[in-house]
Structures are given as structure tokens and as C-alpha cells.
Amino acid sequence: MSRARAWAELLRLPALFTVPGDALSGAVAAGGRPNPRTLLAIGSSLCLYEAGMALNDWADRAEDAAERPHRPLPSGRIRPASAFTAACALTAAGLGLAARAGRPALAVAAPLAATVWAYDLALKHTPAGPVAMAAARGLDHLLGAATTGRPREALPSAALLGTHTLAVTTVSRRETQGGTALPPLAALAVTAVLTLLSTRGAPGTKRAASTGAGDRTATVIATATATATATATGTGVGVGMGAGRRTPAHDRAGLTLDRVLPTALATVYAATAGRLYTHAALNPSPPLTQRAVGGGIRATIPLQAVLAARAGSGLTALAIAALAPIGRKYAKKVSVT
């Protein structure tokens, strides 16, 4: 159990819940529907994300020995060679899954993997570090878009996700020292702008992949995540998505959901990130700065859900949003920063 916990800390496992939404929102932002290739893209994203986590601690092991001696590598719970081997294996697995998803997906996954390695090994402590991290998140979004055949249509939403990641990463550069209110203030302003931009162009009558029984992959994902959420929170769940014959009343309810859902999810996004950014700006101590970083990471999920909802896929948006309470529960046991 001790060794398993050490690996959970190294890989920051609760942060994994922020990853599937990249590919899912990318697929619908590109005008398509989640499909089996999208599931492969999600697997690729998860592997590459965890490769970056393992490589990050391997590259920062000397720095962590001074600033975070409790981390798995400086504490001796995991050998540096094991972390590096895991990073290599996970990268290979991620590229392999992307290849299974098709050439367009591999064409995005390859530069994504290169960006992850370049960030951890060379760019992290340079001014280009936050930009590289933002590029990685945007590429992860486009990886999902590539599985629907029209990734260019997802470029605007990839830019929004990348900008959010840029803000979080900028704050994280001071999480062990604290001392300045400027990064969290800037991140707070970015969050406000992204909240407005993410709901612009939300559908009023567009009924893309969110209705009907045709979006079978999204239905499966929504059902699974809703069930998992119920298990994690101890509440009951009833699933009846896409069942039965549609009526005009169903259509009117769906159109109302299309109008309201993006705004509701954007509000959740702003509250999740903004509250902790405000605390860090008022008192930029290391603990509050670290909490702000954690809040920014968790806020990625509602932002992904907003992007899916504004693309007209309410079902996919709800599937993504269902990941948030699960990630929040496990973040209490293993830190995401």
C-alpha cells in the first residue's frame, strides 16, 4: 500500500480526471461525435499526461530534495530510474494508442509528446514554460478533434483551454515560494475573460451530438461517469438518456438546456478557479498559492464541459462535468500539485 501510494503521488492520479474532457470536448468542437477512436485518443492522452508527471519529478528531483523532500523521489520511496522508465513506457503507450486511433490522431500526439518532454527537460524554468504547457493542453484538445476528421474547427476552443492552462502554470511557478499577488491577479482576470468568451456562440437551436440515441459512445461515457459520481458521492442515480420516443416537449426542453447549460457550467468554472485565485491574491503565501493552483487544475473540467455544451453536445458536456466530483474526492487523498 505504501508503494502504491508513492506512485499515486508521483503520477498525481486525481489530476487524471482533467484529461478525458480534452478529447471529448475536442471531438464535439470539431463538429463530430465521440466514437471508438475518441476513446483511443483519451487513452493516449492519459498515458502522455502521466508520462509528463513522472518525467517532471525525475527532472526536478534535486529541486524537490530542497523544497519538497516529502515527494516520492527525494524521500526514497521511488527510485529515479523507475520514474524515468515509467515516463518512457507511458510515452510509448500513448503514441501507440494514438496510432491505433488513426494517422490524424498520431500526427497530433507526436508533437504533444515532444512538447511534454521539452517542457519537463528544458523549458519548465524558462519564460517559455507556461507557453509550452498551454500548447500541450491545446494539442490534447486537438487530439480528440482529430478523431472526427475536422481538427481545424476546434482551434478556437483549443486556444481557450490553452489560455486557461497558461494562467494556471504561471501561478504554479510561485507555489513553493509565494510572495507576489500579481500571478493570481492575472489568472483571475484571465478566468473572467474566458468565462465570457466560452459562452459566446453557445447554441440556441443547434442540436448537434447532444440528442437522440445516435451518439452511443457519449451515452456510454455519460452513463459510466454518472454512475461513478453516484458511487463517489453516495447518492443515487437514474439514467434514461436517449430512451423512448421524442416529443415536442422533449425538444423544447432540450433547446432550453442548450441555452442554459453553457452559462451554468461557465459559472461553475469561474467559481472553481476564481475563489482560490482571489485568496492567493489577497495572501500570496505558499499554501494558498498551492491551493490556487489546485483550484485552477480542477477548473479545467467545467471549462471543457462549457466548450462541449456550446458546441451543442449537452450529453458530452454532462459526461465531462460528472468527472469533477470524483476528482475532487480523490484530490483530498492525493495532491494534484
Rank of each mutant, 00 (worst) to 15 (best):
R291A: 10
R152N: 13
V220H: 07
P111W: 08
L160R: 01
C88Q: 13
G294D: 09
T263E: 14
G240C: 01
E50K: 10
Y269L: 03
G238S: 10
N283F: 15
A218H: 05
A87D: 04
G32Q: 01
G240V: 09
R246M: 01
A159C: 01
Y49M: 00
L194E: 08
R207M: 09
T229S: 09
A249Y: 10
V131P: 15
R216V: 13
H250K: 03
S45D: 08
G238R: 12
R137A: 10
H141Y: 13
S285W: 08
G274H: 05
P284F: 09
A253C: 02
A228I: 06
R174A: 10
G179V: 04
R259W: 08
L197V: 11
L121R: 05
Q290A: 14
A30F: 11
A54N: 11
R200I: 13
N56T: 12
A271W: 02
R12I: 05
T148V: 04
V168G: 11
I320C: 06
T169A: 13
Y119I: 00
T267A: 00
A321D: 14
G31D: 05
N283T: 15
A189E: 09
A83S: 07
G26S: 07
S44I: 05
A29D: 07
A226Y: 14
L48A: 03
V171Q: 07
D215C: 06
A280M: 03
